[in-house]
Computed example of a mutant assay.
Amino acid sequence: MNYKKAGAVLIPTIIAVGIIVYMLWRVFDDLLTALKTAVPSFLLIAVLICVFAWFLRGFRYQYILKKLVISVSILTSTACIYVSQTANLIIPARLGDLVRLFILKHIAGATYSQGLSSVVVERFFDIVTIALLGAIVLPFALDMPEWFSTVISIALLLCFAFLVFIGLFGNFRSENKYIQILLNLISEIKQASLSISALLVLGVTSVIIWIMDCLICLVIALMFNTNIPFFVIVIAIVIGNLVKAVPITPGGVGTYELAVALTLEVSGTPAAIATLIAVIDHLVKNLVTLIGGVISLYVFGDWAVSLMKRAFSRGINKEDIV
């Protein structure tokens, strides 16, 4: 047994479970009362929004791949994201994203550099959109801790610095083999993201995707007959996802729920309701991801299932692609 690899998965999982258990334990006496007020039919609405948002993510990813001269269908691009995000629910440090490189290599003949570039562009637009939404609605949210604006400002500054870096070094060349590999990666990122059309398409779709993500949380709040202002929901989702971006636990499980629940509590939502909203919101999103990932694996075929098994057991090697 590889104890180092086992520990890398087990320790973050224990942290995630510990956070969730603590959150539920501290409001345990009020949980049953809160659950009695729930209207389960809202769950179906939340799931439908989540599924639609996934296909919108697939459309956005298909566009990114098209800019890199990689042609796939929207079903394939959506399935590709499903599989990598499913891997992220288990593999720590968001390393599940790397599964996507091998899938693209197998189904479209993409280089590993193109695959990595596509993931970086997608992640960049997610983070910058989340931070911008937070910056827009934060002035309307009263009594929010000052560190919220600090976190959002740092995220925006990092995104701006990344854009400047890509813009400056996107066309450089080097005689050094390894430096040139990095420069090729930067050039591909620039190719996929820094044209006017790309900024417009990726920017608009990213805003819609994250507004829908916030709507899922709002619907879960309505499930408990709780009227929370939409801008408060947006702030909670923004903080939850910025915290989740730090890969402490697989899929951000535990850290996301804690950040969302505490943000809702600061706004005046009862602790038990805030905890249930945060936990169920993330549970719905993760279950849709998991189900979509399993379906996608079997649509791709046995090679993809084998690849995922190897990724979980001993990491992915180049020879896994046949």
Results as ranks from 00 to 15, higher is better:
V120N: 05
S41L: 12
A8F: 12
K318A: 04
C159M: 14
I179E: 15
F160I: 12
L89F: 03
I186H: 11
V246F: 13
T263H: 06
W303T: 00
T205E: 07
A155S: 09
S195I: 10
A236I: 08
P250E: 05
S206V: 06
L48G: 15
A278K: 05
V201R: 13
I154P: 07
V266L: 11
K190T: 08
E265Y: 12
D126A: 10
L142F: 12
Y61Q: 07
W303C: 01
T13P: 04
D320S: 05
V9G: 15
S73W: 10
F165G: 09
D30E: 07
S197P: 00
A79G: 06
W25P: 00
Q62A: 08
V279Q: 05
W54Q: 14
I14K: 04
I186F: 04
F55Q: 04
V128H: 13
L222I: 01
A271G: 01
G134D: 11
I216Y: 03
S71H: 14
N184F: 03
L95N: 04
G7K: 10
L133E: 07
L242Y: 10
I316A: 00
F124T: 15
N241I: 05
K177R: 15
L138D: 07
A245F: 10
A236S: 01
K105M: 11
W25H: 13
I15T: 06
S174T: 08
